[in-house]
């Protein structure tokens, strides 16, 4: 047992993976001496050397593109993109090469590359530092997309992602980096591509991932005052989606509210809504409702409390669902 912040849990997970497999590399801007702007790679270069923890030149396309080459050569690169909004120079390499090489080579080339992206808002940052671009990756065939929401998952999921032979976009909720939890380092972890019931309930199902998971849990607690017994599901894997627990839950509650920070149109939340509607049509007491960011650019940070789904907006959606 150890009490860890999410940042430290990721750090420990990376360390464990690097100790286990000498082919695991960490690469990115400022990941070496500085230990990353969020300190997720703190101390790794000191312990594993500059050959395994690479302070790269400042170019995201270069980071991803060279990771692809390293993977062809048999390495397992873990790339850090400093902030969500900086991934786009590397998006071409992700979509054109990283995602497709296994398919193009008919399986002869594997791409065990993890691209870590701190995502989401709520930290009062300037432009390009608070975005939730997960749908842009979930939409790309060949990529797998996951998001952790707490230190326990962070510790295990990063290790599982590194040992996966497919390219994984690994989203880390940056406003939760410093929240602590007890992590059982000897536990048997849940599989990587599995969602999980974070709180059992019977009135309505809340599904979310990453930073809003805690919001959902807080909403569930606050909802008790209104007589609601809300079930909360942490989706964890956004592509492929693991809707089993969601479907089981909706068949019991008949109501689903999907919560995410990203804009709602063509989003992961939209996909969840569509699939649940297909799979649970006969069980639905109300339409699936999304609580999300708006279809606007991420606003200046003084507006972000208006933009981000919070407890009140989640419970407002709960009310609307129950009013059907």
């Amino acid at each position: 047992m150890a009490v860890l912040t999410m940042a430290k849990a990721l750090n420990d997970g990376l360390r464990a993976a690097m100790e286990r497999d000498p082919k695991v590399l960490v690469m990115g801007e400022d990941v070496g001496k500085l230990g990353g702007v969020f300190r997720v790679t703190d101390g790794l270069q000191k312990d594993f050397g500059e050959q395994r923890v690479l302070d790269t030149p400042l170019a995201e396309s270069g980071i991803i593109g060279t990771a692809v080459g390293l993977a062809i050569r048999g390495f397992r690169p873990v790339c850090e993109i400093q902030f969500d909004g900086f991934v786009f120079p590397g998006y071409d390499q992700i979509v054109s090469q990283l995602a497709k090489l296994h398919f193009r080579s008919q399986g002869k080339v594997r791409m065990p590359v993890v691209v870590r992206i701190p995502f989401g808002g709520g930290i009062g940052a300037v432009e390009h530092h608070s975005e939730s671009p997960e749908a842009l990756f979930a939409h790309v065939a060949g990529l797998k997309v996951v998001a952790c929401s707490n230190p326990v998952d962070a510790y295990w999921m990063i290790q599982q992602a590194i040992s996966c032979d497919d390219p994984i976009i690994f989203f880390e909720p940056k406003r939760r980096y410093w929240e602590k939890a007890e992590v059982d380092l000897d536990a048997t972890p849940l599989p990587l591509f599995a969602s999980r019931v974070a709180r059992a309930g019977s009135t309505l199902t809340l599904a979310g991932y990453g930073p809003v998971l805690r919001t959902c849990l807080e909403a569930a607690t606050a909802g008790e005052a209104d007589g609601h017994d809300l079930e909360v599901i942490d989706l964890r894997t956004l592509s492929p989606l693991d809707l089993g627990p969601v479907v089981d839950s909706v068949r019991r509650t008949g109501r689903l509210v999907v919560v995410a920070e990203a804009p709602s149109e063509s989003s992961v939340a939209a996909e969840v809504a569509a699939r649940v509607q297909e799979l649970c049509f006969h069980s639905l007491e109300a339409p699936v409702i999304r609580v999300s960011g708006f279809d606007t650019p991420y606003p200046p940070s003084k507006c972000e409390e208006d933009y981000l789904p919070d407890l009140d907006r989640v419970l407002d959606a709960v009310d609307r669902s129950l009013a059907w």
Binding site: E29, D30, G32, D55
Partner: peptide
């Protein structure tokens, strides 16, 4: 460049 000197 944050923590990286020009030779990087």
């Amino acid at each position: 460049a944050i923590s990286e000197p020009t030779e990087r």
